[in-house]
Protein backbone atom coordinates (compact mmCIF):
# COMPACT_ATOMS: atom_id res chain seq x y z
CA UNK A 1 0.00 0.00 0.00
CA UNK A 2 2.75 2.38 0.95
CA UNK A 3 4.59 1.30 -2.18
CA UNK A 4 1.56 2.19 -4.26
CA UNK A 5 1.23 5.59 -2.64
CA UNK A 6 4.91 6.26 -3.15
CA UNK A 7 4.66 5.40 -6.82
CA UNK A 8 1.60 7.57 -7.22
CA UNK A 9 3.37 10.54 -5.67
CA UNK A 10 6.38 10.04 -7.92
CA UNK A 11 4.07 9.79 -10.86
CA UNK A 12 2.37 13.03 -9.93
CA UNK A 13 5.37 15.19 -10.73
CA UNK A 14 6.10 13.33 -13.96
CA UNK A 15 2.46 13.78 -14.84
CA UNK A 16 2.65 17.48 -14.05
CA UNK A 17 5.42 17.92 -16.60
CA UNK A 18 3.45 15.97 -19.17
CA UNK A 19 0.47 18.17 -18.35
CA UNK A 20 2.41 21.36 -19.10
CA UNK A 21 3.46 20.08 -22.51
CA UNK A 22 0.03 18.61 -23.19
CA UNK A 23 -1.56 22.02 -22.64
CA UNK A 24 0.50 23.34 -25.53
CA UNK A 25 -0.65 20.52 -27.81
CA UNK A 26 -4.25 20.93 -26.85
CA UNK A 27 -4.33 24.70 -27.24
CA UNK A 28 -2.83 24.55 -30.72
CA UNK A 29 -5.28 21.82 -31.67
CA UNK A 30 -8.12 23.93 -30.34
CA UNK A 31 -7.36 26.93 -32.55
CA UNK A 32 -5.87 25.25 -35.61
CA UNK A 33 -7.19 21.69 -35.50
CA UNK A 34 -3.77 20.25 -36.08
CA UNK A 35 -1.17 18.43 -34.02
CA UNK A 36 1.99 20.45 -33.60
CA UNK A 37 4.55 17.70 -33.92
CA UNK A 38 7.35 20.12 -33.16
CA UNK A 39 6.09 20.89 -29.65
CA UNK A 40 8.25 18.24 -28.03
CA UNK A 41 11.29 19.90 -29.55
CA UNK A 42 10.30 23.28 -28.17
CA UNK A 43 10.37 21.48 -24.82
CA UNK A 44 13.92 20.40 -25.64
CA UNK A 45 14.94 23.93 -26.63
CA UNK A 46 13.64 25.15 -23.29
CA UNK A 47 15.81 22.67 -21.44
CA UNK A 48 18.87 23.52 -23.55
CA UNK A 49 18.34 27.25 -23.08
CA UNK A 50 17.99 26.67 -19.36
CA UNK A 51 21.24 24.75 -19.42
CA UNK A 52 23.11 27.54 -21.18
CA UNK A 53 21.70 30.30 -18.99
CA UNK A 54 22.35 28.31 -15.84
CA UNK A 55 25.93 27.64 -16.87
CA UNK A 56 26.51 31.31 -17.61
CA UNK A 57 25.01 32.29 -14.29
CA UNK A 58 26.93 29.72 -12.31
CA UNK A 59 30.23 31.04 -13.61
CA UNK A 60 30.10 33.87 -11.10
CA UNK A 61 27.02 33.20 -9.07
CA UNK A 62 25.81 30.78 -6.48
CA UNK A 63 22.96 28.35 -7.00
CA UNK A 64 19.77 29.71 -5.53
CA UNK A 65 16.05 29.50 -5.99
CA UNK A 66 16.02 33.02 -7.39
CA UNK A 67 18.57 32.00 -10.00
CA UNK A 68 16.34 29.08 -10.90
CA UNK A 69 13.44 31.38 -11.62
CA UNK A 70 15.72 33.62 -13.64
CA UNK A 71 16.68 30.60 -15.73
CA UNK A 72 13.02 29.72 -16.08
CA UNK A 73 12.09 33.20 -17.33
CA UNK A 74 14.92 33.19 -19.86
CA UNK A 75 13.88 29.80 -21.20
CA UNK A 76 10.26 30.95 -21.43
CA UNK A 77 11.25 34.04 -23.40
CA UNK A 78 13.41 32.13 -25.85
CA UNK A 79 10.81 29.45 -26.44
CA UNK A 80 8.04 31.99 -26.74
CA UNK A 81 9.93 33.65 -29.56
CA UNK A 82 10.71 30.26 -31.09
CA UNK A 83 7.07 29.27 -31.04
CA UNK A 84 6.09 32.56 -32.64
CA UNK A 85 8.69 32.17 -35.39
CA UNK A 86 7.74 28.56 -36.13
CA UNK A 87 4.10 29.50 -36.51
CA UNK A 88 4.93 32.49 -38.68
CA UNK A 89 7.30 30.70 -41.07
CA UNK A 90 6.09 27.14 -41.23
CA UNK A 91 2.42 26.99 -40.35
CA UNK A 92 0.89 30.31 -41.33
CA UNK A 93 1.69 29.98 -45.05
CA UNK A 94 -0.09 26.66 -44.98
CA UNK A 95 -3.33 27.91 -43.47
CA UNK A 96 -6.17 26.16 -45.21
CA UNK A 97 -4.05 23.50 -46.88
CA UNK A 98 -4.89 19.83 -46.46
CA UNK A 99 -4.05 18.44 -43.06
CA UNK A 100 -1.50 16.00 -44.39
CA UNK A 101 0.62 18.81 -45.78
CA UNK A 102 0.71 20.62 -42.46
CA UNK A 103 1.45 17.41 -40.60
CA UNK A 104 4.44 16.69 -42.81
CA UNK A 105 5.62 20.25 -42.33
CA UNK A 106 5.35 19.83 -38.59
CA UNK A 107 7.46 16.68 -38.81
CA UNK A 108 9.95 18.66 -40.87
CA UNK A 109 10.15 21.40 -38.26
CA UNK A 110 10.58 18.82 -35.53
CA UNK A 111 13.41 17.10 -37.39
CA UNK A 112 14.99 20.44 -38.18
CA UNK A 113 15.08 21.43 -34.51
CA UNK A 114 16.38 18.06 -33.41
CA UNK A 115 19.15 17.86 -35.94
CA UNK A 116 20.24 21.45 -35.98
CA UNK A 117 20.72 21.20 -32.25
CA UNK A 118 22.79 18.10 -32.84
CA UNK A 119 25.23 20.17 -34.82
CA UNK A 120 28.42 21.03 -32.98
CA UNK A 121 27.88 24.74 -33.35
CA UNK A 122 24.66 24.71 -31.35
CA UNK A 123 24.71 21.91 -28.84
CA UNK A 124 26.25 18.79 -30.23
CA UNK A 125 24.96 15.24 -30.21
CA UNK A 126 26.22 14.31 -26.77
CA UNK A 127 24.21 14.67 -23.63
CA UNK A 128 25.15 17.21 -21.04
CA UNK A 129 24.26 17.43 -17.43
CA UNK A 130 21.96 20.17 -16.29
CA UNK A 131 23.83 22.26 -13.73
CA UNK A 132 22.56 22.18 -10.16
CA UNK A 133 21.04 25.63 -10.17
CA UNK A 134 18.74 24.68 -7.35
CA UNK A 135 20.74 24.14 -4.18
CA UNK A 136 18.12 21.84 -2.67
CA UNK A 137 17.40 19.74 -5.75
CA UNK A 138 18.22 16.47 -4.03
CA UNK A 139 16.60 17.06 -0.72
CA UNK A 140 13.85 14.88 0.54
CA UNK A 141 11.07 15.32 3.02
CA UNK A 142 10.07 12.25 4.97
CA UNK A 143 6.39 12.05 5.78
CA UNK A 144 5.61 8.90 7.70
CA UNK A 145 6.90 6.11 5.45
CA UNK A 146 6.82 8.19 2.30
CA UNK A 147 9.72 9.96 0.64
CA UNK A 148 8.77 13.22 -0.98
CA UNK A 149 11.36 14.99 -3.09
CA UNK A 150 11.23 18.76 -2.79
CA UNK A 151 11.87 19.02 -6.51
CA UNK A 152 8.64 17.13 -7.12
CA UNK A 153 6.82 19.56 -4.87
CA UNK A 154 8.27 22.43 -6.91
CA UNK A 155 7.22 20.81 -10.16
CA UNK A 156 3.66 20.22 -9.05
CA UNK A 157 3.49 23.67 -7.47
CA UNK A 158 4.71 25.45 -10.60
CA UNK A 159 2.31 23.44 -12.73
CA UNK A 160 -0.66 24.28 -10.53
CA UNK A 161 0.19 27.97 -10.52
CA UNK A 162 0.68 28.12 -14.26
CA UNK A 163 -2.48 26.14 -14.98
CA UNK A 164 -4.55 28.44 -12.78
CA UNK A 165 -2.97 31.48 -14.41
CA UNK A 166 -3.68 30.12 -17.86
CA UNK A 167 -7.27 29.25 -17.04
CA UNK A 168 -7.75 32.72 -15.64
CA UNK A 169 -6.28 34.24 -18.76
CA UNK A 170 -8.49 32.18 -21.02
CA UNK A 171 -11.63 32.88 -19.03
CA UNK A 172 -11.30 36.42 -17.85
CA UNK A 173 -9.15 38.39 -20.26
CA UNK A 174 -9.97 39.74 -23.67
CA UNK A 175 -7.13 37.90 -25.35
CA UNK A 176 -8.34 34.71 -23.73
CA UNK A 177 -11.76 35.31 -25.16
CA UNK A 178 -10.19 35.90 -28.55
CA UNK A 179 -8.44 32.55 -28.36
CA UNK A 180 -11.64 30.84 -27.34
CA UNK A 181 -13.52 32.50 -30.16
CA UNK A 182 -10.95 31.45 -32.73
CA UNK A 183 -11.08 27.90 -31.43
CA UNK A 184 -14.82 27.75 -31.95
CA UNK A 185 -14.87 29.23 -35.44
CA UNK A 186 -12.04 31.28 -36.79
CA UNK A 187 -13.96 32.83 -39.67
CA UNK A 188 -16.77 34.11 -37.50
CA UNK A 189 -14.26 35.35 -34.97
CA UNK A 190 -12.59 37.33 -37.70
CA UNK A 191 -15.96 38.74 -38.69
CA UNK A 192 -16.42 39.87 -35.10
CA UNK A 193 -13.30 41.94 -35.32
CA UNK A 194 -10.85 39.55 -33.73
CA UNK A 195 -7.44 39.38 -35.31
CA UNK A 196 -7.31 35.61 -35.76
CA UNK A 197 -3.63 35.62 -36.69
CA UNK A 198 -2.74 37.39 -33.51
CA UNK A 199 -4.80 35.03 -31.40
CA UNK A 200 -3.18 32.04 -33.03
CA UNK A 201 0.29 33.47 -32.55
CA UNK A 202 -0.48 34.10 -28.92
CA UNK A 203 -1.62 30.51 -28.54
CA UNK A 204 1.66 29.28 -29.89
CA UNK A 205 3.65 31.66 -27.71
CA UNK A 206 1.84 30.65 -24.54
CA UNK A 207 2.05 26.96 -25.37
CA UNK A 208 5.76 27.24 -26.08
CA UNK A 209 6.38 29.09 -22.85
CA UNK A 210 4.70 26.32 -20.91
CA UNK A 211 6.78 23.79 -22.80
CA UNK A 212 9.90 25.73 -21.83
CA UNK A 213 8.93 25.57 -18.17
CA UNK A 214 8.32 21.86 -18.56
CA UNK A 215 11.73 21.47 -20.19
CA UNK A 216 13.60 23.23 -17.40
CA UNK A 217 11.71 21.29 -14.73
CA UNK A 218 12.40 18.01 -16.53
CA UNK A 219 16.07 18.90 -16.76
CA UNK A 220 16.12 19.58 -13.02
CA UNK A 221 14.58 16.22 -12.30
CA UNK A 222 16.46 14.18 -14.91
CA UNK A 223 19.63 16.21 -15.53
CA UNK A 224 20.42 14.47 -18.82
CA UNK A 225 19.98 17.06 -21.58
CA UNK A 226 20.40 16.15 -25.26
CA UNK A 227 18.80 17.22 -28.53
CA UNK A 228 16.56 14.17 -28.84
CA UNK A 229 15.22 14.42 -25.32
CA UNK A 230 11.98 15.98 -26.49
CA UNK A 231 10.87 13.11 -28.68
CA UNK A 232 9.45 10.67 -26.14
CA UNK A 233 8.06 13.23 -23.67
CA UNK A 234 6.51 15.05 -26.61
CA UNK A 235 4.72 11.97 -27.85
CA UNK A 236 3.65 11.04 -24.33
CA UNK A 237 2.33 14.53 -23.72
CA UNK A 238 0.36 14.22 -26.94
CA UNK A 239 -1.09 10.96 -25.69
CA UNK A 240 -1.93 12.76 -22.45
CA UNK A 241 -3.73 15.47 -24.40
CA UNK A 242 -5.71 12.84 -26.31
CA UNK A 243 -6.44 10.99 -23.06
CA UNK A 244 -7.91 14.05 -21.46
CA UNK A 245 -9.72 15.22 -24.52
CA UNK A 246 -7.87 17.20 -27.12
CA UNK A 247 -9.02 20.77 -27.22
CA UNK A 248 -9.71 20.92 -23.50
CA UNK A 249 -7.07 22.46 -21.24
CA UNK A 250 -8.42 20.83 -18.11
CA UNK A 251 -8.45 17.58 -20.03
CA UNK A 252 -4.79 18.04 -20.89
CA UNK A 253 -3.90 18.49 -17.24
CA UNK A 254 -5.99 15.53 -16.18
CA UNK A 255 -4.58 13.39 -18.96
CA UNK A 256 -1.05 14.39 -18.11
CA UNK A 257 -1.42 13.54 -14.44
CA UNK A 258 -3.12 10.23 -15.20
CA UNK A 259 -0.55 9.19 -17.75
CA UNK A 260 2.32 10.13 -15.46
CA UNK A 261 0.90 8.05 -12.65
CA UNK A 262 0.11 5.04 -14.83
CA UNK A 263 3.56 5.13 -16.37
CA UNK A 264 5.25 5.27 -12.97
CA UNK A 265 3.07 2.44 -11.67
CA UNK A 266 3.93 0.22 -14.63
CA UNK A 267 7.57 1.12 -14.27
CA UNK A 268 7.44 0.01 -10.67
CA UNK A 269 6.29 -3.53 -11.44
CA UNK A 270 8.98 -6.17 -11.64
CA UNK A 271 10.12 -6.50 -15.21
CA UNK A 272 7.93 -3.57 -16.10
CA UNK A 273 10.57 -0.91 -16.49
CA UNK A 274 11.29 -1.95 -20.08
CA UNK A 275 7.68 -1.49 -21.02
CA UNK A 276 7.38 1.95 -19.48
CA UNK A 277 7.62 3.67 -22.84
CA UNK A 278 5.07 1.39 -24.41
CA UNK A 279 2.47 2.32 -21.78
CA UNK A 280 1.74 5.63 -23.44
CA UNK A 281 1.17 3.97 -26.80
CA UNK A 282 -1.08 1.29 -25.40
CA UNK A 283 -3.11 3.98 -23.63
CA UNK A 284 -3.26 5.93 -26.89
CA UNK A 285 -4.51 2.99 -28.89
CA UNK A 286 -7.11 2.10 -26.27
CA UNK A 287 -8.30 5.71 -26.15
CA UNK A 288 -8.45 6.07 -29.92
CA UNK A 289 -10.39 2.85 -30.24
CA UNK A 290 -12.84 3.29 -27.40
CA UNK A 291 -13.21 7.01 -26.80
CA UNK A 292 -11.36 9.23 -29.25
CA UNK A 293 -12.85 12.37 -27.81
CA UNK A 294 -11.00 11.75 -24.59
CA UNK A 295 -12.17 11.82 -21.00
CA UNK A 296 -13.28 15.46 -20.92
CA UNK A 297 -13.83 16.13 -24.58
CA UNK A 298 -17.09 16.19 -26.48
CA UNK A 299 -17.82 13.54 -29.05
CA UNK A 300 -17.47 14.89 -32.56
CA UNK A 301 -20.04 13.82 -35.07
CA UNK A 302 -18.92 13.63 -38.65
CA UNK A 303 -21.22 15.51 -40.95
CA UNK A 304 -21.43 14.58 -44.58
Amino acid sequence: MIELLQQLINGLSLGAIYALVAIGYTMVYGVLRFINFAHGDVFMVGAVTGLYVANVYLKDGEPSTLAFFLVLICAMLVCGVLGFVIELLAYRPLRGRPRLTVLITAIGVSLFLEYSFQHKAIFGPNARAFPPILPWVDSIAIVGDLLIFWIDVLVVGVTVVLTIALSAMIKFTKVGMAIRAVSYNSDTAALMGINANRAISLTFVVGSMLAAVAGVLWACKYPNVHPLMGLMPGIKAFVAAVLGGIGSIHGAVLGGLLLGMVETLVGGLEGGSQYKDAVAFVVLIIMLLLRPSGLLGQTLHEKV
Partner: peptide, 8 residues
Protein backbone atom coordinates in the same frame (compact mmCIF):
# COMPACT_ATOMS: atom_id res chain seq x y z
CA UNK B 1 19.09 19.35 -41.35
CA UNK B 2 18.94 19.53 -45.13
CA UNK B 3 16.37 16.71 -45.17
CA UNK B 4 14.07 18.50 -42.78
CA UNK B 5 14.42 21.84 -44.55
CA UNK B 6 13.75 20.03 -47.82
CA UNK B 7 10.58 18.58 -46.33
CA UNK B 8 9.34 21.95 -45.11
Amino acid sequence: IVYSLLLI
